[in-house]
């Protein structure tokens, strides 16, 4: 294992801003794995830390194949984590909206450029990331329909789901999109949580990444193969939205199977305690995403369901 500074900025009063990378094996740039870009993505750092520990042991056992280099960057943004702020410390910009970056630009453009320079030539790119809304996910690999996406390759992770979604205007500035433009096979990997530690999905993520690398001949790993992934188009998922704002009382959680008409959650009047709305499953389905905050706004998609095929 080799530890190196990927990018660095001197600060006036804080310790230097450093993006640390951990290299395993040597040879061609095979796999790059990135953890958090935002300050609340703690699970994403945690997963990477566990992967670093695992790869270090595997390297010592000679289980990293000859001619392959793996780079793990647990955190592109330690500064925001340390002050518990989601976006960049001073100007609130999102590093994951700054790729491919610009060396002469603003601070977060420079960070994106400095990091991207080091990671753009890898064959496979994996990013542990999070959703813009608070909630828990069934673990999955998420791919944008850019025309470069390779679903068969994504199946090698053995994650329960592969989610396909259309690109949106801001996507052109994400790490995943730019990796693809630079001809890296890029995958966004979602585990269950973001701002809390979920060990079950962390273990699944580690197994999935190692399984993938084993199938591609990059490491030697004998785990069980995981799942035969279901491929789901994001547009085919059913969003269950609140009509009312209020206290959110969860009845079912992520991963649960529900029948048509089954109550999913109650919205409670915060002053009088009455149930003002009960959300129900519109079809027999599996809970793919579930809101996990104690309050909710009106019109919020608090559940995303995958409909069971008859």
């Amino acid at each position: 294992m080799q530890k190196k500074v990927i990018y660095e900025i001197k600060s006036l009063y804080r310790d230097d801003f450093q993006v640390m990378g951990y290299e395993f094996g040597s040879g061609e740039n095979s796999v790059c794995i990135v953890g958090n870009t935002r300050g609340n993505e703690i699970q994403q750092i945690y997963v990477c830390s566990q992967l670093v520990k695992r790869l270090k042991a595997m390297e010592e056992e000679g289980k990293i194949s000859e001619g392959h280099k793996i780079l793990v960057i647990p955190s592109i943004n330690p500064y925001s984590v340390n002050i518990q702020k989601r976006f960049w410390t001073t100007d609130n910009t999102d590093i994951n909206r700054m790729f491919p970056g610009y060396h002469l630009g603003e601070t977060t453009q420079r960070i994106a450029a400095g990091v991207f320079e080091e990671i753009k030539d890898y064959r496979y790119g994996m990013q542990f990331t999070s959703f813009y809304m608070p909630g828990k996910f069934t673990p999955h690999v998420r791919m944008m329909k850019t025309g470069f996406e390779d679903i068969e390759l994504a199946k090698k992770f053995g994650m329960p789901y592969i989610i396909l979604r259309n690109t949106r205007p801001y996507d052109t500035t994400t790490l995943n999109y730019n990796w693809q433009i630079w001809e890296t096979n890029a995958f966004s990997i979602y585990t269950t949580s973001t701002n809390s530690i979920d060990t079950a999905s962390e273990k699944m993520a580690i197994r999935s990444v190692l399984t993938f690398m084993n199938k591609e001949g990059i490491v030697e790993y004998q785990g069980h193969d995981g799942y035969i992934s279901s491929v789901v188009d994001d547009r085919d998922m059913i969003s269950v939205r609140t009509k009312m704002s209020g206290i959110f009382e969860e009845i079912v959680g992520v991963g649960d199977e529900v029948e048509k008409g089954q109550p999913l959650a109650n919205i409670i009047n915060p002053y009088e305690g009455e149930i003002v709305e009960t959300l129900e499953a519109p079809a027999d389905s599996i809970v793919f995403f579930a809101h996990d905050e104690p309050i909710t706004y009106a019109n919020t998609a608090v559940y995303k369901l995958i409909v069971k095929k008859a």
Partner: peptide, 8 residues
């Protein structure tokens, strides 16, 4: 007044 490397 406070600037980081890169601030406009």
């Amino acid at each position: 007044p406070i600037v980081s490397e890169g601030s406009l």
